[in-house]
């Protein structure tokens, strides 16, 4: 299988879907001539023209609102929000409109919309380093995908574009350069299906997006000490597929959730509650969580470095759970 980057995998998915279906179009800030702030849409403007790859004025609420309108009007828009931080400007359109229109109108009107947007950080300061996936995962009517590998990103995005439901497709700015194996030729992956990325018998680590790689790194380290972690990649946060995590806990009896977002009311809280309730009899210890320090992300490098779980922290926590 060819090795391609997360960025190229996403671009390939967009391109293939635009060729397959001429109702698919892209809109957002800087997506056209410039090719996207993270170069995801590079060359698509040249290939498909300005009518299908649209540089918009700076108005996130209108980008999402117009995309919802276009979706209701028969197109299949893929709206890009330059970063997930700017989704805040579009929140009513996402929460009250994209997610609810199908329900509110008795199923008469569909909103086949994809919102692509990266989470991430890297000395960007308090307003530009956020994650927010838990907010979106909170919403009935929305599908929330947060892929961690090039293969998953491509297969899930293609499915998202073909879906009749609105999909929040959350990428990660620090994964765009990551290379991974991606099948040649056409394939799709189902939304709402978790995936085991590493097998193990001692501890179950449930995670997604960039933290998948932190968890895999920690698992690699721990394996040298004879500790075998099973790493479950959620891939989709709503609907949430707990099957693989449940199976895993039956064998490991211990679970740790690793997320990049703040932990209070985060994905880890949800997962811990579910495992605690549905796998109570299999647990030897409470479900543990690791996430972002509960302060806004600072710019200063020395402080930012303390904000997010790293491999050492994950490995330490696993050791503690086993001791």
């Amino acid at each position: 299988m060819p090795l391609i980057t997360y960025r190229d995998a996403i671009r390939d998915a967009l391109r293939e879907e635009m060729i397959r279906d001429d109702r698919v179009l892209i809109l957002g800030e800087e997506v056209g001539v410039w090719g996207g702030t993270y170069a995801v849409t590079r060359n698509l403007h040249e290939e498909f023209g300005g009518k299908r790859v649209i540089d918009t004025p700076i108005a996130e609420a209108a980008i999402i609102g117009a995309a919802i309108g276009a979706a209701m009007g028969g197109l299949r828009p893929v709206a890009e929000l330059m970063t997930i931080n700017f989704s805040l400007e579009a929140m009513d359109q996402i929460v009250n409109n994209a997610a609810k229109i199908h329900y509110m109108f008795g199923g008469q009107i569909k909103v086949p919309l994809v919102i692509r947007t990266p989470a991430g950080w890297g000395q960007l300061g308090a307003t530009h380093s956020q994650s927010f996936e838990a907010w979106f995962a909170h919403l009935p009517g929305l599908i929330v995908a947060m892929p961690g590998t090039p293969r998953d990103a491509k297969g899930l995005l293609k499915t998202a574009i073909r879906s009749e439901n609105p999909v929040m497709f959350i990428e990660h700015a620090r994964l765009y350069g990551l290379k991974g194996e991606v099948p040649e030729g056409e394939y799709t992956l189902p939304l709402g299906v978790s995936d085991i990325k590493r097998g193990g018998r001692d501890v179950t680590i449930v995670t997604y997006s960039r933290m998948l790689h932190v968890a895999l790194g920690a698992a690699e380290e721990l394996a040298k000490e004879g500790i075998e972690c099973e790493v479950v990649d959620l891939r989709t946060l709503r609907p949430l597929d707990m099957g693989p995590a449940y199976e895993s806990v039956k064998k490991t009896h211990r679970a740790l959730v690793v997320e990049e977002d703040w932990t209070t009311c985060g994905m880890g809280a949800e997962i811990a509650a579910r495992i605690g309730r549905d796998r109570f009899d299999h647990l030897d210890a409470p479900v543990e969580r690791l996430g972002q320090v509960e302060v806004p992300v600072p710019y200063a490098k020395n402080l930012e470095a303390l904000m997010f779980p790293d491999e050492r922290m994950v490995a330490d926590r696993v050791r503690k759970m086993l001791s």
């Binding site: 931080n85 805040l88 400007e89 000395q123 300061g125 308090a126 600072p298 710019y299 200063a300």
Partner: peptide, 26 residues
Amino acid sequence: DATRGRQMPNHWCDRNIHLVSVSSPV
């Protein structure tokens, strides 16, 4: 840094001269 390393470069703030922290979101 009077703002304690919290914000990106170009995000100044100084209460003494009524300069309110520069806003990143446009």
